[in-house]
Design a protein around this nucleic acid. Structure first.
Lengths: 186, 186
DNA sequence: CTTGACAAACCGTCCAGACGGTATCTTAAT
DNA sequence: ATTAAGATACCGTCTGGACGGTTTGTCAAG
């Protein structure tokens, strides 16, 4: 007899909501804040409802991972399509995506993923697989020291954004970006 | 009337032991493995004893954080003493320490622990403070885009080592290090 | 009327921390 | 040099709550 029982059923929307809330919670309260109770309640769903969509907690985290890497892949692919130079193409796309994350409000999910990656061993493995797959795919064009360095710098910047540890002003940020671009070409 | 009651008191040693054990546990079992029960038991101390030294769990984690940043500060200071060039001196010391971490097998636990700590929001704030303090201290010499970029790249490399996501061979690693050094000078 | 999409109550486990006690150490007056 | 009087350093037990997960029930759509 509850409200939820009477509202129109929209499982896909609820699923998305759950993922979104899980991401937000882990950002605000750390990985420990992602409990089944908290996520379900914040998403306006019962715990049983959550467990209907994700049979256990790991499935929820995996869902988050899939969601986010999917978006990442699509964004990178999109960027690569507009790059005429083959050497370092993947690296430049990676850079673009990372820099775009700063402005994107949706980027909070990404930050969360990273933190979750660091703490959850299973997701660490999945991330390793993701990196290995892409390294293999672009071994001919993006495995120079310069490309690697550029991507590492992007990761560092990303980390700094997550931790809000550095306060980089815009001109400096653009200067760094130019340098990273140059690195991707050598 | 237990044996432990009769053994010689050595508070400082017990404190160190607790920190050491907490670090080891987080390495072996992840952040979730650091429970008061586990730490106290592995350190041969009762839970009450642990809570005498650290009044709550956060205090224990803070103790770990202090321990680690203390070591980090000393290592950086040491490196800076041997660098005659003022511009980018802090950055180069930072690079040296990060690269040293990778080669030092003992320090591996250090990395995982750091990650565990960073997943805790409160400690994230403390880390931010640490970074801000050092940025302030070396604002004259280490705030160029090149220095920042070099440090970000070091962070990225460090992250990759933790996640074991990239498999970088030694020549490439050295090539990157040389580039990062050059960045610290511009 | 079957099945998918939830709700709600409940269970076993684990964990942080409180609590009351005991043994050792320190200090300072004798 | 003793020793009484705290202060400090622990010990061992208990509890309340949180958390992951299960089970059972309910509604609604096809």
């Amino acid at each position: 007899m509850s409200i939820a029982h009477h509202r129109r059923k929209q499982p896909e929307l609820v699923r998305q909501q759950l993922l979104e809330v899980a991401a937000r919670l882990s950002l605000e309260q750390g990985a420990a804040g992602v409990t089944l109770d908290a996520v379900s309640q914040a998403a306006g769903v019962s715990k049983g409802g959550l467990l209907h969509h994700f049979p256990n907690k790991m499935a929820l985290l995996n869902g988050l991972f899939d969601d986010l890497t999917g978006k990442l892949d699509r964004a990178i692919e999109e960027e690569m399509r507009n790059d005429p130079i083959s050497h370092g193409r993947f690296t430049r796309a990676y850079l673009s995506v990372v820099f775009a994350l700063e402005e994107d409000v949706d980027a909070q999910g990404w930050q969360v993923l990273t933190v979750a990656l660091l703490s959850e061993p299973q997701l660490r493995d999945r991330w390793r697989l993701w990196v290995a797959d892409h390294a293999d795919e672009f071994v001919g064009t993006d495995s120079s020291a310069g490309c690697l360095l550029a991507r590492f710098a992007a990761d560092g910047l990303w980390l700094a954004d997550i931790l809000k540890s550095h306060d980089v002003n815009q001109p400096t940020r653009q200067a760094m970006r130019a340098q990273m671009l140059a690195l991707s070409l050598q």
